[in-house]
Amino acid sequence: MDVSQPQVYFTALAVGLLGGVHCLTMCGGLVATLTLGLHPEIRRDPRRMLPYQLVYNLARISGYAVAGALFGALGSMLTEFESLKLTQRLLQGLAAVIMVLLGLYLAGWSSALAALERLGAPLWRRLEPIARPFLPVQRLVQAAVIGFIWAWLPCGLVYSLLIMAMSSADPRAGALIMLTFGLGTLPNLLGLAFLAGAVARLTEHSWIRRLAGLLVIGFGLAMIV
């Protein structure tokens, strides 16, 4: 994958921004839990709650970037075992197929990608209990720990972008791909926390979902060609 091409990062941003329907499904309950998990005095004042919500999400996005760097490094290691050109093409081909499946998933035309989410369930079962002692949240450091753990919640969108990060065969590019994706998710999840989902519900319109899906499918097909 030519990570110098802006469409790589545009796709990552679009997946994060327009994947709001999936965010509502996967993260809605967690966002509600984290909001209710704040100390009541903090929760009642939106101005005091804002720093905590930002820390939750920035720590989550940092977790994505760490995972992207790890997968980029994994892709780089894989290219050492076989012909560099052949391995990169295989990784790019895999990323392209996943992009097409992700586009179908975002548009609501296929649920095949949901199988990816089940792969991360064992890891999440080990990580989720680690966050429990940090509730209710009264300090920003607690919010940071919980936010970083949140990044490892099983999610088809995240796993799809991690495969793209792996195909970059570069830890820095992998981290940047995941960072861009994470920033795209920020408006939906902040809106979900503060406005009871009013911002996130904008992405429930079928034409927005289909437009997002078609954009991602188009990028995947271009990669295949």
Rank of each mutant, 00 (worst) to 15 (best):
L176K: 03
L190P: 03
L162F: 02
E128Y: 05
G182T: 00
A173R: 04
M164S: 15
R132N: 12
P154G: 07
L189P: 10
G191K: 01
S160M: 08
A151G: 14
V141G: 13
S160C: 13
A173V: 08
C155H: 04
L162I: 01
V145T: 06
A131P: 05
F134I: 07
L183T: 00
L127E: 10
L186D: 02
G191Q: 05
W124F: 12
L123T: 01
V137Y: 02
L189D: 10
A169N: 10
L179Y: 00
R125K: 10
L140A: 07
L189R: 06
L161C: 12
R139H: 15
F181T: 05
I130H: 04
N188M: 08
A175V: 05
P136I: 09
I146D: 09
T180L: 09
S167D: 06
G184W: 08
V137A: 11
A143I: 02
R125D: 13
S160N: 11
P129Q: 06
G184K: 06
W150F: 15
V137I: 15
P171K: 10
V158M: 04
A144Q: 10
G182N: 04
I177M: 10
A143T: 03
L179K: 06
T180E: 12
L176G: 08
I130F: 04
S167R: 07
P133D: 05
A169W: 02
L161S: 11
A143L: 04
P136H: 12
L140H: 10
T180Q: 09
L157M: 12
I177W: 05
W150G: 08
L161R: 07
G147R: 00
W152I: 14
S167C: 11
V145E: 03
T185R: 12
I130Q: 07
P136R: 01
L153F: 15
R125E: 14
R132E: 14
L183H: 03
P187N: 01
P136T: 12
L179A: 14
A131C: 02
I146L: 14
M164Y: 06
V145C: 03
L189W: 06
A143C: 01
L123M: 09
E128T: 12
I149A: 04
A143S: 03
L161P: 07
F148T: 02
F134H: 05
M178I: 01
I163P: 04
R125V: 11
I149W: 11
G156N: 04
Y159I: 11
Q142W: 05
L127M: 13
A165I: 14
L127D: 09
L189T: 03
L153M: 13
R139C: 09
P136F: 08
D170V: 00
A173L: 06
G184V: 00
